[in-house]
């Protein structure tokens, strides 16, 4: 039953999925790493990105591949707004800042779910036809679904671009510096709020990108973010907070571990493998694989 082909197929699927998890998680990693803020509504950001993609398709017949940049741009704005209206105040909290961040974004998550249910109804949506949807490439008998493949490539590209952005551009360095010392950067004329708002916008835009890709092959309903949120947190923590490369590596590891666990244990327990690996890693390296915080 467990032929070599089956194993390779499982691992290939796991790798693709892992890269996608990485893409979903990178926005979280960015926000975490640069502002030390938890976004408990990350799953809901993914959810509305998927809805946005769906409605662009349903009303304007725009293929998700084309609407991805639009969705990312819209999410950029949304992320910045969330920072300015909510997170900015959460970070100002003089006491229990960590808890305030967790719970204010948690409340936001609930509101977003309620709004989604209110406006879109709880019914399940799906994009039936699209450029990539339902198509698969077969290489040597190993099936690579096109949406996941494109998503994986996009993930690699996004990580590469992000890495360059943070380390090679002025803005990226400004983000780093603002994290290190908000007071000092103010002296140099950098508006902390502006930098952070843009940081949140960027993080949200990355989620938007992943949401657009996910909408091609996944179902959409108000609670869809929940299943991915926990995986995203574990991915980022596994790779280490503060490390963009860590999120990338974390995603790949999670995807492969999930696939491997399903080969050994009953599939209903495949998440146990992911969680166990996380615990193992942090037991040995308490700051994750590449974490700097």
């Amino acid at each position: 039953m467990l032929t070599a082909e089956a194993i390779i197929q499982s691992l290939a699927s796991g790798l693709l999925m892992g890269l996608l998890y990485g893409l979903i998680a990178v926005g979280l990693a960015l926000i975490f790493g640069l502002m030390d803020v938890v976004n408990f509504a990350h799953g809901e950001f993914l959810m509305i990105s998927m809805y946005a993609t769906f409605f662009l398709f349903a009303f304007f017949a725009i293929d998700p591949l084309l609407s991805a940049p639009l969705v990312a741009a819209a999410m950029f704005v949304f992320g910045a707004v969330v920072y300015l209206l909510i997170v900015r105040f959460a970070m100002r909290a003089k006491a229990n800042a960590g808890m305030v961040q967790i719970f204010s974004t948690f409340g936001l998550a609930i509101v977003m779910r309620g709004l989604a249910q209110f406006f879109f109804t709880p019914d399940y949506r799906s994009i039936p036809q699209s450029a990539l949807g339902g198509k698969t490439i077969s290489i040597a008998g190993i099936f690579l679904p096109e949406p996941q493949l494109v998503g994986a490539l996009l993930s690699i590209a996004a990580f590469g671009a992000l890495y360059l952005f943070i380390n090679r551009t002025d803005f990226g360095r400004a983000l780093e510096a603002t994290r290190e010392d908000p007071g000092a950067v103010a002296l140099v004329g950098i508006d902390k709020n502006r930098v952070f708002a843009l940081g949140w916008g960027l993080g949200a835009a990355l989620v938007g990108l992943s949401g657009a890709i996910m909408a091609i092959f996944f179902y959409i309903y108000p609670d869809v973010g929940a299943s991915f949120a926990l995986i995203a947190y574990v991915t980022v923590a596994l790779g280490g907070f503060g490390s963009v490369f860590g999120a990338f590596a974390g995603g790949i590891i999670v995807g492969l571990v999930e696939a491997t666990t399903a080969l050994i244990l009953p599939p209903s327990l495949k998440s146990v493998g992911i969680y166990a690996v996380y615990l193992l890693v942090v037991f040995i390296r308490p700051r994750g694989l590449f974490g700097s915080m």
């Binding site: 909510i86 959460a90 808890m99 305030v100 719970f103 204010s104 948690f106 409340g107 936001l108 998550a109 609930i110 509101v111 977003m112 779910r113 309620g114 709004l115 989604a116 249910q117 209110f118 709880p122 108000p222």
Partner: peptide, 15 residues
């Protein structure tokens, strides 16, 4: 989902 909206908003505001 109105109850969720109310509940969530209150959590955000209070926190």
């Amino acid at each position: 989902g109105v109850d969720l909206i109310v509940y969530g908003t209150l959590i955000v505001l209070i926190s």
